[in-house]
Design a protein around this nucleic acid. Structure first.
Lengths: 200, 200
DNA sequence: TCCGACCCGTGACGAATGTCATGACCCTTG
DNA sequence: CAAGGGTCATGACATTCGTCACGGGTCGGA
């Protein structure tokens, strides 16, 4: 019996998937979560075999959840996303994710992907994988991405600095460096292009 | 037997819903469509009892599909949407839609809503309906919205001014006024909240 | 070993941004 | 008519932001 955690903030898709997966005799849904933080808590508590994580969630997104779980529990993570881009895939793989599925796949395939990942294999959507090979990687360093991510809702430099436990000056240096690489001139523009390319 | 057409461009949610509805003995899925135009064609061809239409679709959106079908066939339409807002609801009702369901509802409820609408009754999500009555309209003026829209990708004040044929000072005044109403302190934050509430 | 990259921090500078006061013009409404 | 709201504009002001130069630290690869 494969024990599965599902996290998606959209009730309709989450409950629909859960109902379908419950019909499978070898799968058991042990947790349904509607946010990233909820998913982390639940995963640490119930210790599932597989986590099916939506990427777009309030608070922590799917990849961030996988990062936090990676190494702490044995669960293997599958990230599901609406906008599948090569950059997101890379970020997910770096976070130790074992499965990557765009929502343009059919729901029927999800059960098989869960079984596959539970069996220790990986699953990466073939189309996205092909794109990822041919596509340019983010020129931004980890810290530069952190800073943009922490400021993506218009937070001030001071707030970003506090959130990342950095000095404001350091934050501005990272920002400035990122702006140069992206050839833009404001943080807001930088977050827009970074999001479009799936780097955040 | 209630004959149902489903239209949603996202394969995972559409196939998941279709599979669930197929389990209901009194429902029959007679068409699955991935775009608005496809939905119109299929509806005219198969003459379903109920159309379950996603709002966010490429080409024609759900409300536009309902408009085109209204009066031509007897099918009753239900619009499903991710971002349910009073404004959208008003538009849907004007288009002759009989059901309005946000994706924050559980999938299990969909079958009942379909039966209800097929029986000639209406279904409007209670929460959204309440919002619509209390009229949560934007406190921003037309110009303030224009300015935020023109700057939503991080454009500078000067660029916004040029785009709207205004003086930079005027733009800053509108921005400042909008920031006060939204209780935020930067343009980027303002665009984030305005977008979240569906005002931009 | 040294070099390069990334990371963290400081300080200073100019430019952009947001705030405020003020005044003008058009509307609509009472 | 008068009052009020929205629009447009100007100028002054403090703050924030992005840039630059600089120094110190770690770490991995040549």
């Amino acid at each position: 019996m494969i024990r599965v955690l599902i996290a998606d903030d959209e009730d309709m898709i989450r409950t629909a998937l859960a109902s379908l997966l419950r019909l499978e005799e070898d799968l058991e849904i042990v947790a349904e979560c509607r946010s990233g933080t909820e998913a982390v808590d639940a995963a640490l508590r119930v210790d599932p075999d597989v986590c099916l994580l939506d990427l777009e969630m309030p608070g922590l997104d799917g990849v961030e959840v996988a990062e936090r779980l990676h190494g702490r529990i044995r669960a293997r993570c599958i990230v599901v996303t609406r906008h599948a881009r090569p950059g997101v895939l890379r970020r997910a793989l770096r976070a130790g994710v074992e499965g990557f599925v765009p929502k343009s796949r059919r729901a029927e395939e999800v059960a098989d992907i869960i079984r596959r990942v539970a069996a220790g294999r990986r699953y990466v959507d073939p189309e996205i994988a092909a794109d990822a090979l041919s596509d340019e990687r983010s020129p931004l360093t980890a810290r530069e991405l952190d800073v943009l991510r922490a400021g993506r809702r218009g937070e001030t430099i001071a707030q970003i600095a506090a959130a990342l436990h950095l000095s404001p000056g350091t934050v501005r240096n990272h920002v400035s460096s990122a702006l140069g690489k992206l050839a833009v001139s404001s943080r807001q523009q930088a977050t827009v292009v970074a999001q479009e390319r799936g780097w955040i």
